[in-house]
């Protein structure tokens, strides 16, 4: 997978961005890279990248998160220096909050990101309500581009129905993802599928964000 040094993961909230960002960070770390993952979610109160601190610690991935993430202080204070993080690492994954509301946080870093080289991935999920058509995705993608000051460079297909996802659901989503990519004028970088589904040609991912009752 040839991606630039900075990889920003954007899309509709709930489409699977965080899980994609976590998997990519671990993927690059396993390949021997010095990786940092940035939790840039200023929208979501829980189910976020900062939940996986232990996992990142054991994989040697540095985690940068808003100062008060996972506390009761509902203030999205971003106190890290992305330029410094890019200088210190081979790869910086940025998990951006959902929609254009979340991508606002990316805007302040756009010059720095462009100067270091940045791929902005847009995650699609065929089964996600209100982003089930290429037109709906294109509208949201343009909103994200407008507020972030960055252009999307690729589509990631993360089509899933949570715990109910089957291999067939994933396979049936590929033409949709290709249509989204064509509409956006960028390539489909990969289709993600939970490893045990055994979807041929898919980028195998682990599902880290699990319900609390699956302890």
């Amino acid at each position: 997978m040839h991606l630039k040094k900075a990889v920003a993961v954007t899309g509709h909230y709930g489409s699977g961005k965080t899980n994609i960002a976590v998997n990519l960070a671990l993927h690059f770390a396993a390949a021997g890279e010095n990786v940092c993952i940035v939790d840039l979610d200023i929208v979501n109160p829980y189910f976020r990248t900062a939940d996986f601190g232990e996992l990142f610690g054991s994989a040697g991935v540095e985690l940068a998160a808003p100062k008060y993430a996972n506390t009761n202080l509902d203030i999205p204070a971003l106190t890290f220096d992305i330029g410094a993080l890019l200088d210190r690492h081979d790869r910086v994954l940025i998990d951006v909050g959902g929609d254009d509301a979340g991508a606002v946080a990316l805007g302040q870093y756009s010059d720095t990101l462009r100067s270091h080289g940045c791929d902005m991935l847009y995650v699609v999920n065929k089964y996600r309500f209100l982003t089930r058509t290429p037109a709906e995705n294109l509208e949201l993608l343009h909103d994200i581009e407008r507020v972030s000051g960055l252009k999307a460079t690729g589509i990631v297909n993360c089509s899933n129905l949570g715990a109910e996802t089957t291999a067939r659901d994933v396979l049936e989503s590929v033409p949709f993802a290709e249509e989204c990519a064509a509409a956006a004028g960028v390539p489909l970088i990969f289709t993600a599928a939970e490893g045990s589904l055994g979807v041929e040609g898919a980028f195998p991912v682990k599902v880290y964000i699990r319900p609390f009752w699956e302890e």
């Binding site: 909230y13 709930g14 999920n125 089964y127 996600r128 309500f129 089930r132 899933n160 129905l161 109910e164």
Partner: peptide
């Protein structure tokens, strides 16, 4: 049609 939705969204749409 099955839609993947956040609980809050499901409340609003319903």
């Amino acid at each position: 049609e099955r839609n993947l939705m956040k609980g809050n969204e499901a409340l609003a749409e319903a």
